[in-house]
Design a protein around this nucleic acid. Structure first.
Length: 433
RNA sequence: AGAGAGAUGGCAGAGUGGUCGAUUGCGACGGUCUUGAAAACCGUUGACUGUUACAGGUCCGGGGGUUCGAAUCCCUCUCUCUCUGCCA
């Protein structure tokens, strides 16, 4: 969340940023927040003064009792009882004000970076670059949900949605045979690349508590989008970002340990409530999927260089997978709640004839760090760090694109699918056939 | 799941009603000594809030209560550990 002193001192900048996001009632919200905060500070001042007086009297009484002056002690007690009533009241008022400030503050999204274009929807995103050649497929090329039929063991589906339906429900596919092996290959390939780039691998828990959900901003914003185990009050992670970033919740990092570069593979779980539509067939949208995530903690002055580095890292993966892609700079209206700048990487899915988002790389600046209380020391004073993360990469749509883009007709007139060269050493086969 | 114990500063670990934000040790940082290092010695070393700056205030797992005064007493919640049971 944003820091109140910042908003107080930069009211116009704050408002301009919120407007770029099309945040409704920016003026009213900010002014209400500042008014509440002023009230809060006044109340605290009044309370502090009374507490200071009460503390002084308590000490006096202690001294009087020691000296054996009972009458003096009793006289001093009289004044404190009046103070007690008002400090209790003030304390309650203060707690209420703090809660109101907090409740309002968490509804305010992060401010966009200056390079973020104005805009309302995905149509207003800026295409930063396109790379690669859009493949031209043979006659009768199929989208992946048709293509997968028959490529599994004994003529079954490579990715079995029906079977997953039986085990769990829609959006929980079963990968079998080469389908499972290509998944494992991608995970290892992505992790190896991250290690080469200097990231440290972690295996975090894949269920998280409420404090962690709050720390990275999923709560209260995305409450209904996470699976929740009521018995133990734990959420299934929607992304490894949550547990890995929360490793640094309530931490003051030693300057020598910066930057922090972590990577981790985890399954991800998303309820995707209300987001199913025409375009979400097959692997395009799942309730459970696998992802390798990059998480970084950076000094403020380095965070945008780190973001560019992460973007290039993801692009190199896509290049090596031989997939045509484009990079988008998300507009104010399409950016996530906590982000200051987000690049989306989209891969061309040839048989579907559309771009699929496969990675999202973001700089959150101090927005998450403020919730996490993630800081380091600058000349003896604590200062918030910047957090960043990015998918490198999410598997399902990558697999969908590989299957679709690499399909070809064999000499016998059958469809086969070529495995990208970089993955062959990892999966141990060159063709789906 | 049953029984018991516990939660204090980066870590270890004192403190059971009155200058305790907290003894001490380790660690870290600065200094003396040294060619350099180690050792030894001296000093510094929590966070939040707040003020132009002082001051002031809050925090000993969370919340509530008793008291003029709570790390210390009471209630409650959460979590951790040990033993037993079950189990990859």
């Amino acid at each position: 969340m944003l820091q109140i002193p910042f908003i107080r001192e930069n009211r116009e900048t704050t408002l301009a940023g919120l407007r770029k996001r099309n945040f409704a009632d920016a003026d009213t919200t900010v002014d209400q927040l500042l008014a509440l905060d002023q009230q809060r500070r006044d109340t605290q001042k009044e309370l502090d003064d009374k507490l200071a007086r009460a503390n002084a009297i308590a000490k006096e009484i202690g001294a009087l009792m020691k000296a054996g002056d009972k009458a003096g002690a009793e006289a001093a007690k009289a004044e404190t009882s009046a103070l007690k009533v008002s400090t209790k009241e003030l304390g309650e008022t203060l707690a209420l004000l703090e809660e109101q400030v907090q409740n309002l503050l968490v509804t305010i999204p992060n401010l966009p970076h200056s390079s973020v274009p104005a805009g309302r929807s995905a149509d207003d995103n800026e295409v930063v670059l396109e790379h690669g050649v859009i493949p031209v497929l043979h006659e009768g090329a199929k989208p992946h949900w048709e293509l997968i039929q028959g490529f599994g063991p004994n003529g079954t589906a490579l990715i079995d949605f029906e079977l997953g339906n039986k085990i769990s429900g829609a959006g929980f596919p079963v990968y079998r045979g080469k389908g499972a092996r290509i998944q494992r290959a991608m995970i290892n390939f992505f992790l190896d690349r991250a290690l080469e780039a200097g990231y440290m691998e972690v295996q975090p828990p894949i269920v998280i508590n409420e404090a962690s959900g709050f720390g990275t901003g999923q709560l209260p914003d995305k409450e209904g989008q996470m699976y929740y185990a009521t018995e133990d009050k734990l959420y299934l992670i929607p992304t490894a970002e949550v547990p890995i970033t929360n490793l640094y919740r309530d931490v003051i990092v030693a300057e020598n340990d910066l930057p922090i570069k972590n990577t981790g593979y985890t399954p991800c779980f998303r309820r995707e409530a209300g987001s199913w539509g025409a375009h979400v067939r097959g692997l395009n949208r799942l309730h459970q999927f696998d992802k390798v995530e990059l998480v970084r903690v950076e000094k403020p002055e380095n965070s945008y260089a780190a973001l560019e580095e992460m973007s290039l890292h993801v692009q190199k993966l896509l290049q090596d997978l031989e997939l045509p892609y484009r990079v988008l700079r998300l507009c104010g209206g399409d950016m996530g709640f906590v982000s200051a700048l987000t690049y989306d990487m989209e891969v061309w899915s040839a048989a579907q004839g559309r771009w699929l988002e496969v990675s999202s790389v973001s700089n959150f600046e101090t927005y998450q760090a403020n919730r996490l209380k993630l800081r380091y020391r600058v000349e003896g004073k604590t200062q918030l760090l910047h957090t960043l993360n990015g998918s490198a990469l999410a598997l399902p749509r990558i697999l969908a694109s590989i299957l679709e883009n690499n399909q070809f007709l064999t000499d016998e007139g059958k469809i086969a699918i070529r495995v990208p060269k970089v993955l062959v050493p990892y999966c141990g086969f060159e063709l789906f056939d």
